[in-house]
Design a protein around this nucleic acid. Structure first.
Length: 376
RNA sequence: GGGGGAGUCGCAUAGUGGCAAUUGCAACAGACUGUAAAUCUGUCCUCGGAUGAGUUCGGUGGUUCGAGUCCACCUUCCCCCA
């Protein structure tokens, strides 16, 4: 996996780059749509490809392991062959499920014991097991198995959690190096910085992660309960340590404003369920602001969903019609909103990249920030 | 003409002596950040808010400390027999 920098912004830490995988090149900064169970919810692969112009999507180890299961994925020849997505795929390791499935999981040094949220059955995830599963799924980028430490954790817990994540990382690296890809193309392993909201822990973690010399590095454990300003502070701090010549991936973030702020601080890759989940729940993001489609005020607004949007749904349908679909509970509503939001997110990062290369990123960003956060 | 049943906050429902009153839908608003989410929460008689006040269960009157609930009459609707 190759990463090269195309341009560096002179007024911020923003950069434009190119990440090359065996499933095509990725122009950074990039947003990666989330496709937890192998599907970007409510979106056709063709539209994610041709309309959204996504270059890489996510899958989730825990969810895919439970359903459809490794036998099916291996028989299919990996996730790409299974879901028909021929560009790059990144798989999260299940570290976020360690965080979100509180109550039906048990943390141990060995790994994490999960109870399936589907049928209650018990499963043990160890770093080694997770590497094996990610090999079977066949992701281009495999994430190390970590614990996503809650943003509200105290120092003592955060330190312990971070240290365990580091020990797990060593086990991931070992297993990764002892195993081979199953489908004939290369896979990379990205380690994850933790450390919660504590500066010294974040620095320590960033140094540890950087020392592994991975093809790319991730920042985890953010946007999980801590104030937004703290998140920005942590990103800034960590990125002074993570290598400049490798892509940096801010996991699970975020809002359009978070993307702009993250890019300014040297982040190259983002993923978030927000465009799809909030889209399904009737919220759309546009270059002019945020719209809650269920609100009565859109009842007779027959203007296009987003006149500046880049996907066909933006001009094909009106706000009033889209509101009607949501109010009526029609499945087409979530489909349109999801596609629109992903299209907007990808447009946003493409524009950011264009302005970084053109040299006027900061000016563009400052003009965009108040607009994208505005409630319409 | 005779017999039976029913009228509850937009609609549908619960309630048979302590009730501003159940539940569902609808309506309106909010939340959502590596997806246990096509989900969840709140409001939904009036008074800006209230553990507060006022006014409510077809209408009028009555019994009772207390009535959506019991009684009388009136009224509207539905069903059956003529």
């Amino acid at each position: 996996m190759q990463f090269s920098l195309t341009a560096n912004d002179s007024k911020s830490a923003a950069r434009a780059g190119l990440l090359e995988t065996d499933h095509g090149s990725i122009e950074t900064p990039i947003f990666m749509p989330v496709g937890t169970v192998g599907s970007v919810k409510a979106c056709h692969i063709r539209d994610v490809h041709d309309e959204v112009k996504a270059q890489i999507i996510l899958g989730n180890t825990y969810h895919l392991y439970l359903r459809p299961g490794l036998e099916v994925l291996e028989a299919a020849g990996g996730l790409h062959r299974f879901n028909g997505w021929d560009r790059a795929i990144l798989t999260d390791s299940g570290g976020f499920q360690v965080f979100s499935l509180t109550g039906i999981r048990k943390m141990k040094e060995e790994g994490v014991e999960f109870q399936s949220h589907i049928d209650g059955s018990r499963h043990l995830f160890t770093p080694e097991r997770v590497m094996d599963i990610e090999r079977s799924i066949g992701a281009d980028i495999m994430m190390a198995f970590d614990e996503c430490t809650p943003g509200t954790s105290d120092y003592h817990y955060a330190k312990q959690s971070m240290e365990r994540t580091h020990r797990w990382l060593d086990r991931c690296v070992k297993r990764f190096s002892e195993t081979e890809p199953k489908y004939g193309y290369r896979q990379a392993l990205f380690p994850i910085v933790q450390g919660c909201v504590y500066r010294d822990l974040r620095m320590q973690s960033a140094e540890y992660i950087a020392s592994k010399g991975a093809d790319g590095n991730a920042i985890g454990g953010l946007a999980v309960g801590e104030p937004t300003e703290t998140m920005y502070e942590m990103i800034e701090l960590v990125n002074t340590i993570l290598p400049k010549d490798k892509p940096r991936y801010l996991m699970g973030v975020g809002t359009p404003a978070n993307l702009l702020e993250g890019i300014s601080r040297g982040v190259d890759m983002f993923d978030c369920v927000m465009p799809t989940r909030n889209g399904r729940n009737g919220m759309i993001f546009t270059s002019e602001g945020i719209i809650n489609l269920r609100n009565e005020k859109w009842k007779d607004d027959f203007s296009p969903v987003d006149p500046d949007g880049g996907t066909f749904v933006d001009v094909q349908y009106s706000k009033a019609y889209l509101r009607h679909l949501f109010i009526a509970g029609e499945i087409l509503g979530p489909m349109i909103a999801s596609l629109h939001n992903l299209g907007f997110y990808l447009w946003l990062v493409r524009e950011a990249r264009r302005h970084i290369i053109a040299g006027d990123f900061a000016i563009w960003r400052d003009a965009m920030l108040p607009k994208v956060s505005r409630r319409l």
